[in-house]
């Protein structure tokens, strides 16, 4: 059985988990087994409707004390749940929480793990998973050699797929260990789209000259419903907050559309964004290396091109 970990925040199932369900359902079909989910805590979503992503059964540990993520507690509960349900493959989203617990669960289950998988495993001869390595500069095909297998999938690599059907929900009773952390404050940036969950990212570099010029980036992001990002020197100079820094030493993103404005396209920047489906580069230097990694480009001054582009998109959406 394929067991998919369904991650929630603020009692809502994350988009990356819907993608994990789609992936797990396709994998279960490939293996000829059932696709089942495990949810910790209580959520406001309609659980039966998870069937439309291909989930056949949901094991629900509906204890409200699990509404707050705690890596140690979640590791133990998921390990016990995987044993109780006889899971042979576990699927996680390679998101912030997935990164924290999937490897720990794997060691507790004596399972091999591949994190950051890009596609369904090849199960024709073994169990071989393809993942990005060298920060997006290469792929590795890795075989998991243990009876139980754990995979975490890169966000935005598989997509959310719709099916017919409903999920049967079953309560699962697991002893919940004592909390190992105490959350004392949560700070969310209002109205901002989380970078790693965004479909579209508009990113600015040193070419924008200073923080006071970010309005044109924000305006474009707004008409596209996009998240904003930046290159490393921009966050190093405190023009933008650290969490917007993308690249090899920042956040790695893989949106459907990445628009790079006034960014030269250094190898370390590309490493964090080159899995984006479509890349648009706006740069006044026709020799900027980023054009070699782009699908579409405009050679021009950002201060002229961006307002015009924002207006054109607005017009096309009207």
């Amino acid at each position: 059985m394929v067991l998919i970990y369904i991650d929630q925040a603020d009692q809502q199932i994350k988009k990356s988990s819907l993608e994990a369900i789609s992936y797990g359902a396709a994998l279960a079909k490939q293996l000829g087994v059932t696709a089942e989910g495990i949810l910790l805590g209580t959520v406001t979503d309609d659980l039966a409707s998870l069937g439309k992503y291909g989930l056949q059964k949901l094991h629900h540990v509906g204890d409200a004390s699990l509404n707050h993520f705690d890596a140690k507690v979640f590791t133990q509960v998921l390990t016990d749940a995987a044993k109780a349900t006889n899971a042979s493959v576990l699927v996680f989203a390679h998101n912030l929480n997935g990164k924290a617990i999937a490897p720990a669960v794997a060691v507790k289950l004596h399972a091999g793990i591949v994190t950051g998988a890009n596609s369904l495993p090849d199960t024709s001869n073994g169990f071989t998973v393809t993942k990005t390595v060298f920060s997006g500069k290469a792929f590795a095909e890795i075989n998991i050699d243990t009876p139980i297998k754990v995979i975490s999938i890169n966000q935005n690599c598989f997509g959310v797929h719709m099916h017919e059907g409903a999920t049967s929900v079953e309560a699962l009773s697991i002893a919940i260990p004592a909390a190992s952390i105490k959350v004392t404050a949560t700070h969310k940036v209002d109205g901002e789209i989380p970078l790693t969950e965004a479909n579209i990212v508009v990113s600015g570099g040193r070419g924008l000259k200073g923080p006071e010029n970010w309005g044109i980036i924000e305006d474009l992001a707004k008409v596209l419903g996009a998240a904003t990002a930046c290159s490393r020197p921009v966050s190093d100079s405190d023009w933008r907050p650290h969490h917007e820094h993308v690249g090899q030493t920042g956040v790695q993103v893989a949106p459907n559309l990445y628009i790079a404005v006034g960014i030269s396209g250094a190898i370390q920047h590309l490493a964090g964004v080159n899995r984006s489906k479509t890349i648009v580069v706006i740069n006044k230097d026709p020799e900027a290396p980023f054009f070699k990694a782009a699908d579409y480009g405009i050679v021009g001054d950002a201060f002229e091109v961006l307002p015009a582009l924002t207006a054109a998109i607005q017009k096309s959406k009207a």
Binding site: I113, T128, N143, V281, A294, G297, D301, A308, A312
Partner: peptide
């Protein structure tokens, strides 16, 4: 628990399509 079978390099991009700066509608 795992073994690496092979490595691959990503396929090169097929080339950028440039659009004139005064033709954002085309982009």
């Amino acid at each position: 628990t795992t073994s690496i079978k092979t490595y691959d390099l990503p396929p090169a991009k097929s080339g950028v399509k440039l659009v004139a700066a005064d033709n954002v509608d085309e982009l």
